[in-house]
């Protein structure tokens, strides 16, 4: 296992799509980003940093 070439990023970043098929995983990825954004906004508003704080 140790003879596997180590990736050099960011130039090898594209190779992620040789493992993760975007036709299957793009929407789950985007929905996860949306969930994180909603969670962050929820906390920010919950701690009182919302509008007119």
């Amino acid at each position: 296992m140790s003879d596997v070439a180590k990736p050099k990023n960011p130039e090898d970043d594209w190779k992620i799509w040789l493992v993760v098929n975007p036709a299957t995983w793009l929407m789950p990825i985007l929905l996860t980003v949306l969930a994180v954004a909603i969670a962050v906004h929820w906390v920010v508003f919950a701690v009182g940093l919302g509008w007119g704080a």
Binding site: D13, W14, V19, N21, V33
Partner: peptide
């Protein structure tokens, strides 16, 4: 064949668009 089934060309092509969209998001 790759694990995802994409060819190198397809992966590079998709990644170019992914970078554009992600840059706009940031």
């Amino acid at each position: 064949q790759s694990l995802s089934g994409l060819t190198d060309q397809q992966a590079k092509e998709f990644h170019e668009q992914f970078k554009v969209t992600y840059t706009a998001f940031v």
